[in-house]
């Protein structure tokens, strides 16, 4: 689609969508949000870019192939699920690490759940973009 308004607007919109998607990903830990919805929003940014400037540019902006992103996400999620093996827990059990925890300080909580969610984010982003790019190029 050749529309200068859409192209200029996309430059800002895509950036905002990507930041918002990260916000959604991190917020999803205790509140509505999460990797899935984050991935969808992030994908929207690239899809918008693809509609405005063509899939070629969108692919270039993505740098990696969308399939690679999706499968790395799957790998990350599986790894996060397998960490509990080291602690002798069942598959997918959440493990927590409190960075800089001290007396009375909770510290920065890092959990396998977060990495699982990042994995989901990447899978959704990659899968949606694979589909949408394929359809854009095909049809």
């Amino acid at each position: 689609m050749n529309s200068i308004i859409l192209r200029v607007a996309t430059r800002y919109l895509a950036a905002i969508l990507l930041i918002f998607s990260l916000y959604m990903l991190l917020r999803g830990h205790n509140e509505p949000g999460g990797g899935f919805i984050g991935g969808l929003i992030g994908a929207t940014g690239f899809v918008l870019h693809a509609i405005a400037c063509g899939t070629k540019e969108a692919r270039a902006a993505l740098r990696l192939q969308p399939q690679t992103i999706a499968l790395s996400g799957l790998g990350l999620a599986l790894l996060a699920g397998m960490v509990p093996a080291l602690m002798g827990d069942a598959f997918l059990t959440g493990q927590w690490l409190f960075l800089g925890a001290a007396e009375g300080e909770k510290g920065l909580p890092i959990s396998t759940v977060l990495f699982f969610d990042i994995g989901v984010y990447l899978v959704v982003l990659g899968a949606i973009l694979t589909l949408v790019f394929a359809m854009e190029e095909e049809i």
Partner: peptide
């Protein structure tokens, strides 16, 4: 022992990822 039950599923998934990268 619960890991034995999921291992036959995890192995092909891991293989799929590595095979795609290569």
């Amino acid at each position: 022992m619960s890991w034995l039950v999921v291992a036959p599923i995890l192995v092909p998934f891991a293989t799929a990822i590595i095979a795609f990268l290569l």
